[in-house]
Amino acid sequence: MSQYQDNNNNLNKEKIKDEEIDEFERSLNSTSLVDVARDIKNSLHGGETKIVNGDKILLILTDGLGWNVFHETGLQECQKIRSVFPTITVTVMTTLLTAKSPGEHGILGWKVYDKRRGKVVDLLSAIRNGETPEISMPPSYLRGEESVFITPLSGSSKRLFSTLVGAHVRNYFTPYDSLSVLRQSLPEKRFAFFYLPYVDTVSHHYGPSSPETAETVREVSKIAKKAMEIGKSNGFTVVLTSDHGQIDVEKNVDISRDQEILDNIEVPPFGDSRNLMIISRHDVSETFKKYETYIFGKETLSKYAGGNRVPDYAVVPKGRTTLNYWIDDSMDYKGNHGGISKDEMEIPLCVT
């Protein structure tokens, strides 16, 4: 049974039975994306592995493909694993490319706290605007000349991978030419990353339980299966996985005008709307009591994120709610992620 509010932060000491927390804590002992990333690193550099073996790796990442929609793919002989917390794309990408947990690399969402400049930086906005964020990114284990990233031309993925790794990025224009670009990119490479963002995009706008998302999963799976065949025919061990699943959002809550929150925090919240990261000298459990949330103090947050590069608190909405301090288009999303629920955490892993 989990006590999700830390004693050392003078939070409520009562142990509250909560199925979601119990399930999340039990999952911490299962195979995770950190394990997958470490195996890929060891495969490429001659270390010991348990899940992934091979001196050439094709990693196919289907963004937003949670285990709750995976049955639509028709893929066989795959296993269920867990993502990392927070379940945010940039957090997962950093883990996959550094083989470090979020609590080790410190990228806990798209909005990060830049301690040197004393401000919250929106990584996604900066990358989209062609800026180089002044954030200390951890080094990748990948060697640039041996690696290639295949991503859509539209969106921010090219700049994201260049920022995280400094690697060579090749773009495709549409899903229909993506396989051709993949095929052309593999010669003389030991690591290739093939990124398919479409399930995530559709889930955000229609919800993960929608027929639109189910149809997208089926169509994207056709591409993923062909990509697996291309990788195998070129001598690659193929790893197909995802970064997170999504929940169907029932309520988006605007907390940007909540004066009590502003009075009790040192800097604006960062992270994302399903995982607000808080720096505060105060006990914030009462501050957020009006919202249905879990409050993780630093000790628990370090445990859940896998390291000590974490703030004082994380505020995680219960159920199917988001808490929005930074008001943007995501307030209209019908699907979202970032939290600890089963639908957000559980993802597939296929290794061939």
Rank of each mutant, 00 (worst) to 15 (best):
Val181His: 01
Gly130Glu: 07
Gly231Lys: 00
Ser27Lys: 02
Gly271Glu: 02
Asp39Gln: 07
Glu250Lys: 11
Thr293Cys: 06
Cys350Gly: 05
Glu346Gln: 09
Asp263Phe: 03
His105Asp: 06
Ile21Cys: 09
Ile16Arg: 15
His205Leu: 15
Pro269Ala: 03
Asp243Met: 01
Thr151Arg: 02
Ile127Val: 13
Thr98Val: 13
Ser285Gln: 05
Lys115Phe: 02
Ala192Ile: 05
Ile327Phe: 03
Asp283Ile: 15
Val239Ile: 11
Ser273Tyr: 04
Lys13Thr: 15
Leu65Asp: 04
Cys78Asn: 12
Ala314Arg: 11
Val169Tyr: 06
Gly144Pro: 01
His204Phe: 13
Pro348Asn: 12
Gly335Ile: 14
Arg26Met: 14
Glu134Met: 08
Arg117Asp: 09
Ala126Phe: 07
Pro211Asp: 12
Lys15Thr: 15
Thr151Val: 12
Thr216Phe: 01
Asp114Ser: 15
Val310Met: 04
Thr95Pro: 09
Thr174Ala: 08
Ser2Cys: 05
Asn53His: 09
Thr241Pro: 10
Ala37Pro: 06
Phe149Trp: 00
Glu344Ser: 09
Glu48Met: 14
Leu33His: 11
Gln3Leu: 12
Ser203Met: 08
Glu346Gly: 06
Asn234Gln: 07
Glu131Tyr: 11
Gly207Ala: 00
Gly66Arg: 05
Arg159His: 07
Ser157Trp: 02
Glu23Lys: 14
Leu108Arg: 11
Thr49Gln: 09
Phe191Met: 05
Lys189Trp: 05
Leu123Lys: 10
Ile150Trp: 01
Gln184Lys: 12
Ser136His: 09
Leu196Gly: 10
Ala224His: 00
Asp6Ile: 14
Glu23Tyr: 13
Leu179Ser: 07
Val69Gly: 05
Ile107Cys: 13
Tyr294Ala: 08
Lys225Asp: 00
Lys111Gly: 04
Ser157Lys: 09
Asp329Trp: 04
Val148Met: 00
Ser280His: 02
Thr151Leu: 05
Val84Phe: 03
Asn53Thr: 13
Ser273Glu: 06
Ser136Gly: 12
Gly118Gln: 00
Pro211Cys: 13
Arg159Ile: 04
Ala305Ile: 14
Asp114Arg: 12
Leu58His: 01
Gln79Val: 10
Phe270Ala: 02
Ser156Asp: 10
Glu212Arg: 13
Asn171His: 12
Arg82Thr: 15
Leu108Asn: 10
Asp258Arg: 03
Ile255Gln: 01
Thr352Arg: 03
Glu188Thr: 14
Ile230Phe: 00
Leu182His: 03
Phe236Gly: 01
Tyr333Glu: 13
Thr174Ile: 07
Glu25Pro: 07
Thr98Gln: 11
Val90Lys: 10
Asn7Tyr: 14
Ile255Thr: 06
Asn12Ile: 13
Ser2Tyr: 05
Ile88Trp: 00
Ile278Val: 15
